[in-house]
């Protein structure tokens, strides 16, 4: 279908289990993704939710081809990425950008903010008017121009995450992977970053895969959602449908476990299950 940016079918991925590696010889393979099928529509935010160990980050990393799948196919914008080598991938990488969870460790401490945002531009040879492009990128994420000369330790956590977003959007990519990008932030900062993302999606028509364990955030931001558990997709659909009427008991239990900021003495009462 033309309106899907990603089509992923039968995706399996195994990694070596280093905890069971013999001293000599190869580590046994452990299957992290066990057959994943889903599509990412254009100009929309797709949520990928699940608990730790469900494989949501591995799936994200396979999509941007930081990992190579064992089986199945990943078709991105009509192009089969599944087994492309690093040199073949390079021209496409500018369209597959990432925003990371921890903006502290994902920003180079020895470079200025301007130089960090300019790095992807330089990589792809967009060196004309580079200062102008950096200015524009700072503007877009609501950071003052004076930040261009600062270093990562001179700005707050929320501002760092804005830099991460500015860098990811510098090349106007057709796809952005956002892996737990608000989970390290305070609620007040988180609200700012979510509001910013919502505005950017509206203005730029971004296509985002938003990996998160926080279902309230996903309900807020994403048009559609996939729920992962143990390397498989348990449930997928429009966010509204999945939340209002979950079909699977696992999805139900995930939603029920969210503590809403409303006092409720019964919430902690032992239930029948």
């Amino acid at each position: 279908m033309a309106d899907n940016l990603f089509t992923i079918s039968g995706l399996k991925l195994s990694l070596p289990d280093m905890t069971r590696k013999p001293v000599f010889g190869a580590a046994p393979q452990i299957e992290i993704l066990k057959g994943i099928d889903f599509q990412v529509p254009r100009n929309a935010v797709t949520g990928i939710v699940g608990e730790s160990g469900s494989g949501k980050s591995t799936l994200g990393r396979a999509m941007v081809r930081l990992l190579e799948p064992t089986e199945g196919t990943i078709v991105f914008d009509g192009l089969d990425l599944t087994h492309l080598g690093e040199n073949e991938l390079r021209p496409h990488r500018r369209n597959l950008q990432m925003i990371f969870q921890d903006p502290m460790s994902s920003l180079n401490p020895r470079r200025t903010i301007a130089s960090i945002i300019a790095a992807p531009l330089r990589q792809y040879g967009l060196t004309d008017n580079i200062d102008g492009r950096v200015k524009e990128a700072l503007d877009r994420v609501g950071l003052p121009q004076s930040f261009a000369k600062r270093y990562r330790h001179e700005i707050s956590g929320g501002q760092r995450q804005r830099v991460g977003i500015a860098r990811a959007l510098a090349l106007s990519p057709s796809f952005v992977l956002a892996d737990e990008i608000v989970s390290g932030l305070d609620v007040s900062t988180q609200a700012q970053i979510l509001t910013l993302l919502e505005r950017l999606c509206r203005e730029l028509g971004l296509t985002i895969a938003f990996i998160s364990h926080d279902l309230s955030v996903v309900r807020r931001l994403c048009e559609q959602v996939i729920v992962m558990h143990n390397g498989t997709i348990i449930e997928k659909g429009s966010t509204k449908a999945v939340f209002d009427n979950p079909q699977q008991p696992y999805t139900r239990s995930l939603i029920d476990a969210i503590p809403l900021p409303e006092p409720d003495p019964l919430w902690l009462a032992p239930d029948a299950s």
């Binding site: 609620v187 007040s188 988180q190 609200a191 700012q192 979510l194 509001t195 926080d214 279902l215 309230s216 955030v217 996903v218 309900r219 807020r220 966010t239 939340f243 939603i255 969210i258 809403l260 900021p261």
Partner: peptide, 20 residues
Amino acid sequence: RALLAATPRYTDPEASLLPV
């Protein structure tokens, strides 16, 4: 009040999320 308004709730996704 600002902290409460900044907390997203899955039951009320349309409510405007107000940064502090």
